[in-house]
Design a binder for these strands. Sequence first.
DNA 1: CTCCGATTGTTTGGATACAAATCATTTTCA
DNA 2: TGAAAATGATTTGTATCCAAACAATCGGAG
Lengths: 166, 166
Amino acid sequence: MAGPHTLAETERQVNQKLVHKNINFEAMAVTSNLFRAANAVRNHLERTVLAKNDLSWTAFVVLWVTWIWEPIETRQIAEEGGFSKATLTGVLSTLEKRGLLVRKKSKEDGRLVIVELTSKGRKLMDSLFPAFNKQETAVANVVASSKQAQLAEQLRAITKFAESRD
Amino acid sequence: MAGPHTLAETERQVNQKLVHKNINFEAMAVTSNLFRAANAVRNHLERTVLAKNDLSWTAFVVLWVTWIWEPIETRQIAEEGGFSKATLTGVLSTLEKRGLLVRKKSKEDGRLVIVELTSKGRKLMDSLFPAFNKQETAVANVVASSKQAQLAEQLRAITKFAESRD
DNA sequence: CTCCGATTGTTTGGATACAAATCATTTTCA
DNA sequence: TGAAAATGATTTGTATCCAAACAATCGGAG
């Protein structure tokens, strides 16, 4: 949200708009930088790693979650990945059509659908994830190595708080 | 990306998949928590503040940027807000139809479109932004007050890095 | 002056995402 | 047991977003 203008410039402008109220600029900086960072990193990873494999962000997350936990129920994929079941259905169909994973009906519960990678899907992830993680490392190394765990924990705490307000 | 499973559980699973490679789990934690936090906070703000005013996230950002910097050229709105010109065109039309802002052609350069809030739009933002900032404050206060500036700065640096890799 | 390339906003076409409705299956409990 | 409630995935309809093509305008080289 804070783009080409610096935070200080934006602060000055906001103060002109709201002289009488007291605005928490530090909080504003936290959230606006949070959104910009997430967007920028996602775009970066899409460009550097995912685009050449013709994978959307969500498609990659589905493959990743499945790769780690297979065999896995679709509802778990949706929960781990953080998107709706409706979204997942479409992505699964696409990935199944491309031969990267398969759907199977659960034998214990006919309502459930179980997902597994194909060997083609596994081979893809074997090469894709290290490349992905390399870029993740480059991003994380922007902050001092000694501060990365703290940063991750702060973000995790923010997530927990925001999700608890459903 | 790290959902119901803890990071430790995911680590163990990933190690089983990639015993021979060395994966940077700390970096993985930073990025995955970054995405989850941004999503959770955005959803939280949409629910608590924006939904009752029937505003989408992008619509709010457009109003906010315009409110702060008006009169403003559309290309600046798109840049500050971090979305494409195509997206902006649609959102501007919606907001103009709802009487919250107006488009005017620039007199100096016929290609440019200048945007200003209407008094109705200004009145909306006068009440909306304090409520929004109150929720931002609640989110930011999840981390110690003394650490908020550092967090914002780390996120800003990450943004800068990711965007520099275009 | 007059092209011609650059810039800007809009339109078009397609991808993505989700809520609500629907269909199939399982579980509950009277 | 069996009807109703609950659960899970899919379909449907709608909103959002973007890249690429397009139209309008500007500005400079010749």
